[in-house]
Design a protein around this nucleic acid. Structure first.
Lengths: 204, 204
DNA sequence: AATGAGACCGACTAAGTGGTCTAATTAAGA
DNA sequence: TCTTAATTAGACCACTTAGTCGGTCTCATT
């Protein structure tokens, strides 16, 4: 019981530190030793809990990344009405935390996706699954929005979802590259214009 | 004279092979030896022409990447009228070549940007410069479009440009991850909707 | 034929890399 | 207190990395 707790604690410490370094320097550019050095742990500890670096990363994806994406981008829009407003708010909030984080390195998911795509197919799959969760949440929200009269009937929910995801991933990368300070404001502005043309038009 | 030609030929062979591997496997995940093996060349040859791996990559950026981005995304819109149509066409053409390329790994520029951002500031700078060229071309085109009556006066050209870049970078990443086949079609569809709301509205 | 510069070879180094293994330490239960 | 198992230390292994360096080859000029 007590042991199990300690085990989980050490594993979590490793995962948190691992994610931080992977996010900062990239998965391939971060060695297991780097992580261990940061925590004053030894090789033995690491390979006692995880059987390889890859499996370790996958555990991070499934424990930490999935949760962060969910709480930042999925949960806020789930079950709510008025999709455009609520989606805009969730994106704006995410951009705000990114903007105020001096060490922002872009959107976790898209960073790792672009690093592992092609090379590490297994890892890539797990990342894609998370993206899919977000996509489904967006589509569901938009569809519900049609019934509720917030979204025009003719709108292609899949297409809109893909477009939102694209735009968000792209803006996060640009923000991380330090291109202009008011990027977030501009982005939300354009998003709003786009959304407006997807709302039901008053007949005249 | 004859020597100079040979020198340039070898350098270019190295750069072309280097870009291909860097693009496929990432900069950090590709060793100098990998490139040399591909060309049946030796360490000596490489370090005779380039003084480091980093300088080598920078030369690739300035010789090859800048040119590709320019000819695919900048040149097609330069000096032309009707920004929305012409921008849409250039993006669609780029997406088409990407779609038909079985080994597509995403947008070169955004891949390298996300890999080097934070870690390799010098490389990142050169990549950002290229992005800036595209951004300026977009803004210029939009501004000219205002004078020519294709773009509504109230439109924020900077914001629109940033939004276009974001969306394109994002969709390329999604396409590279193999998410759905008709992603390109959907994307262009949404882009068109967005553009429509930026055109001057007929008075009624 | 001799020279000398440009281009290239490939063994070598030093610093990592992921991963293994044994021994030591710690903590729990009897 | 003794035993036993969970946990951690850290030396070690085979391999890869970027970069160096003395030497070799080619070939135009003398």
């Amino acid at each position: 019981m007590e042991q199990t707790l300690k085990r989980l604690a050490t594993m979590q410490r490793l995962q948190v530190a691992g994610l931080e370094l992977f996010y900062q320097n990239g998965y391939h550019n971060t060695s297991v030793d780097d992580i261990l050095k940061k925590l004053d742990l030894s090789k033995g500890a690491f390979y006692y809990h995880f059987k390889s670096k890859e499996e370790f990363f996958i555990s991070i994806i499934q424990n930490l990344i999935v949760q962060r994406v969910y709480s930042a981008l999925v949960q806020p829009i789930e079950g709510k009405e008025d999709p455009f407003t609520i989606i805009e708010e969730s994106l704006d909030a995410s951009l705000e935390t990114a903007e105020h984080n001096f060490f922002d390195n872009g959107f976790v998911l898209s960073n790792f996706l672009s690093e592992t795509q092609g090379k590490d197919p297994e890892i890539n799959t797990y990342l894609n699954d998370i993206l899919k969760i977000w996509e489904v949440a967006l589509i569901t929200s938009l569809q519900k929005g049609k019934s509720d009269g917030y979204v025009a009937r003719h709108v292609d929910s899949d297409g809109v979802a893909a477009y939102i995801i694209s735009a968000y991933m792209g803006i996060r990368l640009q923000m991380a590259c330090g291109n202009a300070k008011n990027l977030r404001y501009k982005f939300i502005q354009q998003l709003r214009i786009y959304f407006r043309s997807l709302a039901p038009q008053p007949i005249h």
